[in-house]
Simulated scan of single mutants.
Amino acid sequence: MWQVNKKIKVLGLDIGGAHIKYAVAQNQKALLKRKIIPFEIYRTPKKLAPLLKAICKEVKPSAIALSMTGELADVFVTRREGVKFILNAAVDAFGGNAINVLTVKGSFVSVSVAMKQTELVSAANFMATVLYTASIVDNSVVVDIGSTTTDILPVINWSPAILAHDDLGRLKSGELFYGGYLRTNASSVLQEISIGKTKVGTCPEFFATVGDAHLYSGDITAKDYTCQTPDGGPKTKRGAGIRLARLILSDPQTLSAKEIESIARQIVKAQTEKIADAIKKLIVKRKMQNAKILLTGAGAKVYRVKLARMIKNPFPGKVNGIKVENISPASASATKLLSAYLGAE
C-alpha cells in the first residue's frame, strides 16, 4: 500500500480484445485523462506487455486499477489462459505490487489472488461502470456502446440491479448485447438487403462491418474506424462502398452510389433497431419506464439521436454535474481505487 496522500495517481486500465482504454485520476477524484488505443490482442498478443510499458512510462502511475475482457480472444484456448496472459503482461509492465484487479463483485484483489481465481476477474469491467453510476444517480440504465458489444446496466434506488456476473449469464439476462458500432459483421445484422423492389440474401461472409456502413453514411470518420477493415483496404467512403457491395456479391461498378448508400442505411437502421430492442426489453422486464438512459461508450455519438427517437426515456447529457460520456470502466475503476486510497469509501 502507498501512503494516503493527494499526490497518488491512479491509472484505470481496461484491456479488451480490440482496444486498450485507460483513464488517469488524481487529486480527489479529478479525472485527468482518458485515451483509447486500438489493439487487437488476437493478432499480436506478444505486443501487449511492451504497449503497457509505454503507457506506464507516459503516465507514471502510483497504482493501477485493472479490468479486462480481452481474455475471450480466440488466440487463447480458455478464459483462464487469457486472464493469466493479461495479468502476466501487466506485471511485466507495472510490477505486481502496483496492480489492483477488479472483480465481478466490484472489489479489488491482488494479482496473486486473480491468478488463482481467474473466474473472479474475467470480463469484470462492467462492474466498475455500474457501481460508479449507482453513486451518482438513483434510477438509470447505463448503455455503453463499444466497438464490439453493448452493456445495458440497470441501477435502481442508488444500487446496481444487475442479475448476472458472467458473460453467458449477462447475455441471458439482457444486460449484454453482442453488437457494437464498429466491428460487428454486417451480414449478421441484416440477412436480406433490398435493392430497389428486390430483396437479396446477404452473403454470410466477413465482407463488411457495421463500421463500414457508418463510414459510408458519414456517421464516423476514418479516425473513428479503430480496427482493421475486413479486406485490409482503406478506411474511406470508397473503400467502405467496395466492402458493402460485396455483401451481395457485387461492386461499385455494378451498383450505383445511391444503391450502396441504401445498403449502408439499411445496415445502420437494423443495428440501431437491435440495440433499441435490447434496451426496451430490459426496461420492460425491470419496470424502468421512467429511468434515465445514460448513453456512453465510443458508439454513443453515433446512436444518441437515433435511439432517442425510438425510446421514450430521457437521455441526459449530464447527471449530477458529471458528463455521461465520461462514464467508462477505465475512468470508473480509476475513480473507485483513488477514493479507496484517499479514504473516501
Score class of each variant (00 low, 15 high):
residue 2 W to S: 11
residue 5 N to F: 07
residue 8 I to L: 11
residue 11 L to I: 11
residue 15 I to G: 03
residue 20 I to C: 02
residue 30 A to G: 05
residue 37 I to A: 09
residue 46 K to P: 00
residue 46 K to D: 14
residue 61 P to R: 03
residue 62 S to D: 15
residue 71 E to P: 09
residue 74 D to R: 13
residue 75 V to I: 14
residue 79 R to C: 06
residue 89 A to R: 00
residue 93 A to E: 00
residue 101 V to K: 05
residue 101 V to F: 08
residue 103 T to P: 13
residue 104 V to D: 04
residue 105 K to M: 14
residue 107 S to M: 08
residue 107 S to Q: 13
residue 115 M to S: 13
residue 120 L to F: 15
residue 120 L to I: 14
residue 121 V to N: 08
residue 123 A to R: 07
residue 123 A to Q: 08
residue 126 F to A: 10
residue 127 M to K: 08
residue 134 A to Q: 05
residue 142 V to S: 04
residue 143 V to Q: 00
residue 143 V to F: 00
residue 144 D to K: 10
residue 151 D to S: 10
residue 171 L to N: 09
residue 172 K to C: 07
residue 173 S to L: 08
residue 176 L to R: 10
residue 179 G to V: 07
residue 182 L to K: 12
residue 184 T to L: 13
residue 188 S to G: 13
residue 189 V to P: 08
residue 191 Q to C: 13
residue 194 S to K: 15
residue 198 T to S: 14
residue 200 V to L: 12
residue 209 T to G: 05
residue 213 A to Y: 10
residue 221 T to S: 15
residue 221 T to Q: 12
residue 222 A to Q: 15
residue 225 Y to V: 06
residue 230 P to G: 11
residue 235 K to M: 11
residue 239 G to K: 11
residue 240 A to G: 08
residue 240 A to I: 10
residue 241 G to T: 12
residue 242 I to Q: 05
residue 251 D to S: 15
residue 257 A to Q: 14
residue 257 A to E: 15
residue 269 K to H: 12
residue 272 T to K: 02
residue 273 E to K: 10
residue 274 K to A: 06
residue 276 A to T: 02
residue 279 I to E: 01
residue 290 N to E: 14
residue 291 A to H: 04
residue 295 L to S: 00
residue 297 G to W: 01
residue 299 G to H: 06
residue 301 K to E: 09
residue 302 V to M: 07
residue 304 R to E: 09
residue 306 K to C: 03
residue 307 L to D: 02
residue 310 M to Y: 06
residue 323 K to I: 03
residue 324 V to Y: 01
residue 326 N to T: 13
residue 333 S to V: 06
residue 334 A to W: 03
residue 336 K to L: 12
residue 339 S to D: 07
residue 341 Y to D: 02
residue 344 A to G: 06
